[in-house]
Amino acid sequence: MPLIQVKDLYKIYQMGNTEVRALDGVSLSIEKNEYVSIMGPSGSGKSTLMNLLGCLDTPSSGDFYMDGINVATMTDNELAHIRNKKIGFVFQTFNLLPKSTSLRNVELPLIYNGEVKAQFRKDLAMKALNRVNLGDRVGHKPNELSGGQRQRVAIARALVNDPAIILADEPTGNLDSKTGEEIMALFDDLHALGNTIILVTHEEYIAEHAQRIVRLLDGKIAVDELTKKKKK
């Protein structure tokens, strides 16, 4: 069974008298350890799909299985737990807590996990920070770090609960191209280590890091193709 299986997913917003079909029957499956880019112009439903895949939102109709669990009908609390344990988010604007240290930021998902005892949290957070080569920046707050370092803290935070998928939304959008490449190299490494990665981007060269590109248009999947990297 695929890690993510989406079938006939609809997300319909009512805006005044007009009905907006943000997702108009999307079916998609993603296997474990796949590296997928989702692309599309603004208004194509890219963000909506990413919110649904990230369990931040529920669809109007359709099935959504993650790791064999039907997420489409879950309550807010259940979704919070899925987000905590199955999904690691990486955002364009990093979204770190500005007044907390790197270590504290990375520790946060473990706190909401509720199953990790307090004395193990620091070790796990340290391990995650070491994995992104930030072991020497644990006591720094986000404003004491460069953009690339902030994004690496965010990636460490995404990894710390050992999630089923890493969901990255324009992870290089706020970084210069050199730092962006470093971050992408980190994602490539994580993929090589067996992680499943979904990348939302509108940059063709960033999308090329993945093995597969799903292109959305008007709420529907227009193209679902393998990249050169995979073909090789």
């Binding site: 919070a80 946060l108 998902p109 909401y112």
Partner: peptide
């Protein structure tokens, strides 16, 4: 609000 959003995204429940 932003902080609350971040906390929720990484798994904070309503009650948290």
């Amino acid at each position: 609000i932003k902080e609350i959003g971040i906390r929720k995204a990484i798994g904070a429940t309503r009650n948290n």
